[in-house]
Design a protein around this nucleic acid. Structure first.
Lengths: 173, 173
DNA sequence: CCTTGACGGTTACACTGTAACATATGCTAT
DNA sequence: ATAGCATATGTTACAGTGTAACCGTCAAGG
């Protein structure tokens, strides 16, 4: 229970800065740049819809439902039927450019694309912010438990619901 | 809630015996008995529908969708509209007698009711078996990461998809 | 040119979950 | 006992989430 406010993260490559105030615009620009880089090195086709879908997630800076993404895509002149959004989102998730938050039936841009990572999500029940935390500790623990029963983990989702620092302070009980 | 009281089992108190061959009937009988005990000590009303819903989960011994549970309830003379199943399942989950598997939109009986625990689910993608593992290691790691960014975890879901021992051996590529 | 394959668009539908209201059951205070 | 209240079960109707299947477009390559 060590109280850490917003110190620079120690090792672990934490990315959960989402809870700290920051410059959204930079988030979007850098996020897109990272995605472009990943797409280039992996030979992915980051088409217009896909690119725009990712941009929408980066701008929102919170988890968006597929239909929310769809609305924005439609507003930009893309198709307005569900598969349009689902296909773009599936693509992004499959290639590690976005994540699906099971608990919310929603999607969020990946803050750390390109590197293999075992993301973990912190979902604030008061303000709905979603932070992606990195780090191997949880994954290692999970692998350990699985190994004890002979289970081979391929993919894992770890999602915690609670209160973010700001909402805690605001007495978000 | 960060206080997780686990059994005194050596090595994490695993309960993931689900992957090992075992006597289903006993599972059901003992599961019901445990639930009765919990209901008694906590003053819960384990009514006919609720009890039957739990029994259905225990019998299936895998995760069931709400509508699957509903079908069986209806076949037993209970209502045949969705809220019937959802209410029973919500009750069971709320009181720790069952768990919801987010990834599958499904429910499974709790193998360890009564005690506060931080369950973790191992989902075999080949045979669809779901094992509930206990243990504090993963939870502790999660709390640690959360604490670093000042996030207060209230509830967490940890779900891993992969291959169970049997399917691994069967070359479940 | 013409085939091939990926992509994006559509229609139509399936699955999952909930709001709101009506009825029954059981407890409690008088 | 019974009136009043809370809880539980049942209903109808609908909202939200996700997918199957088909079709036209377009770029790459024989």
């Amino acid at each position: 229970m060590s109280d850490v406010r917003e110190s620079a993260d120690p090792g672990q490559g934490l990315t959960a800065a989402a809870f700290a105030p920051h410059d959204h615009k930079r988030c979007r620009v850098e996020g897109l740049a990272r995605a472009e880089a990943v797409a280039a090195t992996e030979g992915l086709r980051l088409t217009a819809v896909r690119r725009r879908a990712l941009e929408i997630l980066l701008e929102a800076h919170r988890a968006l439902g597929a239909y929310e993404v769809l609305d924005r895509l439609a507003a930009d002149g893309f198709g307005r039927q569900p598969p349009v959004a689902y296909r773009a989102l599936d693509f992004l998730v499959e290639h590690g450019l976005a994540h699906r938050i099971q608990r919310l039936n929603a999607y969020t841009a990946c803050m750390n694309p390109g590197r293999r990572h075992a993301p973990l999500f912190l979902i604030c029940r008061a303000c709905n912010a979603v932070a992606e935390a990195g780090g191997t500790r949880v994954r290692t623990a999970l692998e350990g438990v699985a190994a004890e029963v002979g289970f081979a983990v391929e993919r894992a989702s770890v999602e915690a619901v609670g209160l973010c620092p700001a909402c805690r302070q605001a007495g978000g009980a």
